[in-house]
């Protein structure tokens, strides 16, 4: 009995953490509220793909030329995968843990971004900020900022790029490899087999 009282007196009331009357020390690696910096965000959508709980969503509204990014702290499981994948460090997990709310609407944050339009077909194809970020990145890797070919390439949508490449005389080979192979006879048997097969098929059809 005496021993027990001695222990109690020795321990005192230090065991109990004083929070909320004193601020709480959280450890360095504590994963709290994901802090989103919309200025730094390029609306690339990497985080929305990585989020295991679908707390991050992104939707594209072509009519209003907007891409909306939204986070729900209600659904977030504070795993940090969005921080891992973000190419611009726009989202980082803070130490903030006092997230309880009475009004559920306060658990949501959103950001709206504009879309860039293709110079050829005028269709929206990517967020404006993502395009300019890629431009900066390419410039940093050694390309010339004022290179007209570069900005033409970046401001064209993928399908127009493909079309342009197809008709570009430099990439057009007019079945060059096919004819070369035929000349070398390496393709000949394949082709003749194909012909026989097609003939059979047409015979069956009749």
């Amino acid at each position: 009995m005496f021993k027990l009282f001695k222990t109690i007196i020795k321990v005192g009331t230090k065991t109990t953490i004083k929070y909320p009357f004193e601020p709480l020390d959280v450890c360095d690696d504590f994963r709290g509220k994901p802090e989103h910096d919309p200025e730094q965000c390029i609306a690339c959508g990497a985080c929305t793909q990585a989020c295991p709980a679908n707390a991050l969503i992104m939707e594209t509204d072509i009519e209003n030329n907007l891409r909306r990014w939204e986070i729900s702290f209600a659904r977030c499981i504070y795993c940090g995968r969005c921080e891992e994948v973000c190419p611009t460090n726009a989202i980082t997990l803070s130490q903030e843990f006092e997230l309880a709310v009475t009004n559920k609407a306060d658990l949501y944050e959103e950001a709206n971004f504009t879309l860039a339009h293709c110079v050829e077909c005028a269709e929206a194809y990517a967020p404006t900020k993502a395009v300019s970020y890629v431009h900066d990145l390419l410039v940093q890797s050694g390309l010339d900022r004022d290179d007209p070919y570069l900005s033409q390439l970046l401001n064209t949508c993928p399908s127009c790029c493909r079309r342009a490449n197809m008709l570009d005389s430099r990439t057009l080979v007019h079945g060059q490899y096919f004819h070369d192979a035929l000349a070398n006879d390496s393709l000949a048997c394949d082709v003749s087999a194909d012909k026989v097969f097609q003939q059979e098929r047409s015979n069956q059809g009749e």
């Binding site: 200025e39 730094q40 726009a90 944050e109 959103e110 300019s132 940093q140």
Partner: peptide
């Protein structure tokens, strides 16, 4: 009291992400 507040951001003119 509640600390968290809903937030909405609209992209400003010429807003740019900075390279690190």
């Amino acid at each position: 009291d509640q600390k968290l507040k809903a937030r909405s951001h609209n992209e400003a003119e010429n807003e740019k992400a900075t390279l690190k």
